[in-house]
Amino acid sequence: MIAPVYAAEVSPASCRGLLNSILELSINYGILVGYTLHLLFSELGWSQSLQVYLGVVPSVLFQLGVLAMPKSPHWLVMRGRLGDARQVLQKISNFEQEVQQRLANIKSAAGIPESCNDDVVEVINKQQSGKGEWEEMSIIATPAVRHIIDAVFSIHFFQQAVGLDSVVLYSPTIFGKAGITSDRQKLLVTLVVVLTKTIFILVAMFLVDRFGRRPMLLTSFGGLIVSLFTLATCLTVIGHSDQKVMWAVVLSITTVYVAPTLTRDT
């Protein structure tokens, strides 16, 4: 979870939602590439171990990219390196006023006076003095912060509890229950599911900063409720029917495409 925290810290406020969504887009893009390579290697008769070896390439590129990334402004300020933090903020902010505001907020959190403009200052380590943990606990104990923590935990818990990942991972099984029996066809339709989800994440990336996270989250959860209920109902009908119920098959396939595009991209 370091990546989204770092992205939120170094991103300008104007495009913070867009840049934070890149993590989810990258995950689904990797899944899409994996399914595509699996299908390609199956058609060519190549060893699947080669697909695993290919994963080394983006890992090396990622490692090289990390070396060029700027250091965390919060980390620099906590170590008294205000000059370095200011330089980083000037690179990642849109306006000088934003630089000053963000630096002032970080200095306030670190216990550094806002009027201090030295490049290097001495910062008292609260943990060494034994006050850091107690101060953090006293902050968490306030009703406002507890409300924020409850909201964050609830959103992340229910986002995982709805089982969207299981819809994607078990989509071949779901398609099999819907009447698609060929392994190649299952792989193809699963590939389309991941592709559809990736496209919708890309769309949400450009809408989240325009319409806001809360409206999009409410809309996506509403659609998710309808999609999962429809999918469960259709699979129940298919499982208890001796004949092929075409309307249930069509709705099952449709909801498998729709459900994974919701909530995770917001």
Rank of each mutant, 00 (worst) to 15 (best):
S154R: 01
F41I: 04
L89R: 01
G163K: 07
A109N: 09
A248H: 01
N105H: 12
I155L: 13
H240L: 14
K177S: 12
V57L: 11
H240S: 13
I199C: 07
T198W: 14
A232W: 04
V256M: 08
L32Y: 03
G34Y: 02
Q63T: 14
P4T: 00
E43Y: 15
M205Y: 02
A68I: 11
I124C: 13
M137C: 13
L64T: 01
R79N: 14
F175I: 07
R264I: 14
E133I: 15
L262C: 08
T142W: 07
I180R: 02
A85I: 06
A204L: 08
F62N: 02
P260Y: 01
Y170C: 13
M246P: 10
H74A: 13
P260T: 00
N28L: 14
V77D: 02
S49A: 12
L195K: 01
W134Q: 12
S93W: 02
S47V: 09
R81T: 07
L231I: 06
G55N: 03
L103F: 00
Y170Q: 09
L67N: 01
K186V: 12
R184Y: 11
K91N: 10
S21Q: 05
K107S: 05
V194P: 11
V226C: 08
I22E: 00
K186M: 15
F229C: 10
M246K: 04
P73N: 00
V249R: 06
K197D: 06
P73D: 00
T255A: 12
G130N: 05
S154H: 01
G176R: 08
S115Y: 07
R214H: 08
K126I: 14
L207S: 04
L217Q: 03
F221M: 06
A7D: 00
Q97C: 07
L61C: 13
G163F: 13
I124N: 05
A141I: 05
Q128I: 14
I253F: 04
P215F: 04
G239I: 08
V121E: 01
V33F: 12
C15Q: 04
V237Q: 03
S138L: 14
F200G: 02
V88H: 03
I22P: 07
V192P: 09
I180D: 03
D84W: 08
S42D: 07
I92Q: 06
Q87A: 14
F211Y: 07
L207A: 05
G34P: 12
V249Q: 07
T255S: 14
T173V: 15
V245R: 01
V249W: 01
A110I: 11
S166K: 08
Q100R: 08
Q160C: 15
G179T: 04
A151H: 01
T196A: 11
A85C: 10
L64Y: 00
R146H: 05
I174D: 02
T266F: 09
V256N: 03
S72C: 08
G30E: 03
H240D: 07
V121T: 05
S93K: 04
H38C: 13
S171K: 08
N125D: 15
A85Y: 05
A8S: 10
T142F: 11
L191I: 03
L18R: 03
S49K: 06
T230F: 10
V249A: 06
E114D: 13
Q243S: 13
R86K: 10
Q90A: 09
Q51E: 03
K131P: 15
T196E: 05
V237M: 09
F221A: 06
D150H: 09
T230G: 11
A141K: 09
L202F: 10
V57N: 01
